[in-house]
Design a protein around this nucleic acid. Structure first.
Length: 271
DNA sequence: AGGAAAACCTGCGTGC
DNA sequence: TGCACGCAGGTTTTCC
């Protein structure tokens, strides 16, 4: 499900309901996620004031004074807002009940996501400590990407999906950004010029920005906090379009596998 | 050290 | 209708 645009869309949907409210109760219905939801969570979270909700990479961070509630959506996680929650369904894992009466419900069929309690500065947490820059951080620029890829013999597409290099870019948005930048996904990263990497930086930002503006992408299960889908999938140039004509040149989009993931691209537009 | 592959899960579409 | 298989938005872990 969620790459950066979907997580950011979720964050924006949660913020007005959650910021400035206190957690009245946490119910853990099924702790089985990537790591078990801590049994102590209901006790430590109850009564805490949510200052704000931040996003780092694809993680959501509910900031509660010096501590944080960290949420990741894996492939199929979602967090929805309910004024009065419906009966619990299969794969509903956690409810966060706010003092306003609103319930935030975490749902995750494949259980690759996480709900963890983090004490102290979240940037020091092992999951966040080694992350590269945010795509919209000015530090992510042509010079940075050029220097960071000089010893990378791997193809640019898996490199772009490496969170040590830059965060938030998953399989969909890596493919779409490379199309927009006119770069073939199989090109060894170290062979790309500074100028072309600069173009890639620009197109990563443009692609993510456009996707956020459309509420993210909904392929199967992603819905926002109100249960609404995103619409950016309608704007895809290459992802999931193998065999179909390129929207720019008409050539058939082809698909290859890189690091176990499907990559689609246009042979004519991407060199 | 970098990189590829396996591992963690459930659900759905396809083809026999 | 049923079953086997492949594949899916992520990221950690393992192995070369």
């Amino acid at each position: 499900m969620p790459e950066l645009p979907e997580v950011e869309t979720t964050r924006r949907g949660l913020e007005p309901h959650a910021a400035g409210r206190r957690i009245a109760a946490v119910h853990v219905y099924d702790p089985r996620l990537r790591w078990p939801v801590p049994g102590s969570l209901p006790k430590v979270a109850a009564g805490r004031l949510i200052d704000r909700i931040e996003r780092r990479s694809k993680y959501l961070l509910f900031r509660l004074g010096d501590d944080s509630l960290l949420v990741h959506f894996g492939m199929t996680g979602s967090l929805r807002v309910y004024d009065s929650p419906p009966a619990r369904q299969t794969h509903d894992h956690v409810d966060i009940v706010l003092d306003s009466g609103v319930t935030l419900r975490y749902h995750d069929p494949r259980r690759f996501g996480a709900v963890l309690w983090v004490r102290g500065p979240p940037e020091a947490h092992p999951l966040l400590a080694a992350l590269g820059p945010e795509p919209f951080d000015p530090a992510f620029d042509a010079d940075y990407l050029w220097r960071a890829t000089r010893r990378r013999t791997a193809a640019i597409k898996p490199a772009l999906m490496d969170s040590r290099l830059v965060v938030g870019v998953g399989n969909i948005y890596a493919s779409e950004s490379l199309f927009r930048a006119g770069i073939r996904p199989t090109t060894p990263a170290q062979r790309l010029s500074r100028m072309r990497l600069g173009r890639l930086v620009d197109q990563v930002r443009a692609t993510l920005g456009d996707a956020i503006a459309k509420g993210g992408s909904t392929l199967r299960d992603y819905v926002d906090t109100a249960g609404e889908p995103g619409y950016f999938q309608l704007d895809y140039f290459v992802y999931g379009r193998e065999g179909q004509p390129c929207r720019v040149c008409g050539a058939a989009i082809i698909s290859v596998r890189q690091g176990g993931r499907a990559t689609s691209y246009c042979r004519r537009c991407q060199c």
